[in-house]
Design a protein around this nucleic acid. Sequence first.
DNA 1: CCGCATCCGAGTCGATACTG
DNA 2: CAGTATCGACTCGGATGCGG
Lengths: 124, 124
Amino acid sequence: MKPQIAHNSVDCRHVKQLLNRIGGKWTVLIVTRLSRGPMRFSELKRDISEISQKMLTSTLRDLEEDGFVRRAVTPSIPPRVDYELTDLGHDLLGPLDALGAWAVKNKDRVEEARQRYRALQPGR
Amino acid sequence: MKPQIAHNSVDCRHVKQLLNRIGGKWTVLIVTRLSRGPMRFSELKRDISEISQKMLTSTLRDLEEDGFVRRAVTPSIPPRVDYELTDLGHDLLGPLDALGAWAVKNKDRVEEARQRYRALQPGR
DNA sequence: CCGCATCCGAGTCGATACTG
DNA sequence: CAGTATCGACTCGGATGCGG
């Protein structure tokens, strides 16, 4: 089974890759936290209390891999690791904020649609 | 430069909900197809050949539930079902296209970052 | 033609325990 | 402090078969 997309446009693949990243359960939460400035691992963990250590680590790794986040290790004892957005990460905030603003602005319309839908679908 | 998304607030949930929707494997593909105009179920199925009937059905249901897509049944024989974007769905195209444009524009930077990352991580 | 029901494998998420 | 390792629960997506 190949992840090949029959959709001809090459660009489509990149769009989907990006969506897969930011569509992750924690990605946006982390990126928006970091938009305020560098944070330590434990700060992020404390700030997003519901996240598990594992998911925080792996999400940060993914973001680092794609060049949105920079990881800075200070080999002291105890060790210290800071994370911050790269230029690319900051650039991403633009469209991301736009989407976020849209979601906030239109949440009522979505909510209405959901209630209308449920009203018409007995059971389910 | 400053985060426009209010963290720790109710808004955050709506943003996440939206991302969960459009982060789905097929959502964007379907929405972009429908942006050109109404389409029948079988047209969509044919156009996105790799999608399974199940996923097409369930994704359309999700989009309908959130008010992005309207479903019109013509009870003829054989039956006929058309799907089209609602006004809300069309509005969503704005931020969605912005994100898509960003992905296309910055694909090289992401690609570079990935290669740089891989070069520094032997094995893994 | 449309799409629901069911089963199943693969990947994801998360709690817990352990290391430098 | 900042992770890694492991294992189970859960969810997603695909295949197939049936029904209106």
